[in-house]
């Protein structure tokens, strides 16, 4: 997991309309510009918010990505809960979830 580069990509994606355009028209070349694993490329291409969350992407970055790919707020929250249920605890980044997401983040 190269969390830094995943978050760097999402940070740029959140901020820059030109990056958003590239994300929609030529995502492979966009992803090529970052040091990503094949798994990370897959999560980003498929909009897998749950995987990105449990691999440590900060929610303040992830929520904008979720909105960009068309997730409503409730769908975004549910995707993180589903990620916890399916894949287990958050395993990277700063904050962990407690009690499958019902107990907060530590």
């Amino acid at each position: 997991m190269s969390l830094y580069f995943v978050q760097k990509l999402l940070y740029n994606l959140n901020r820059e309309p030109s990056v958003q355009a590239q994300f929609k028209t030529d995502i492979d070349s966009l992803l090529d510009a970052y040091k990503l694993t094949d798994e990370e490329r897959s999560w980003l291409k498929n909009g897998d918010v749950g995987e990105l969350y449990i691999h440590g992407v900060n929610g303040q970055i992830l929520m904008h990505y979720a909105a960009l790919i068309g997730n409503e707020w409730d769908e975004y929250i549910q995707a993180m809960k589903d990620g916890l249920k399916k894949h287990g605890q958050v395993r990277d980044g700063i904050y962990r979830a407690v009690d499958g997401g019902t107990g907060g983040a530590v």
Partner: peptide, 10 residues
């Protein structure tokens, strides 16, 4: 608050 996490309503 727990913004942008699964606990965001808490």
């Amino acid at each position: 608050h727990w913004p942008a996490t699964p606990n965001s309503v808490k």
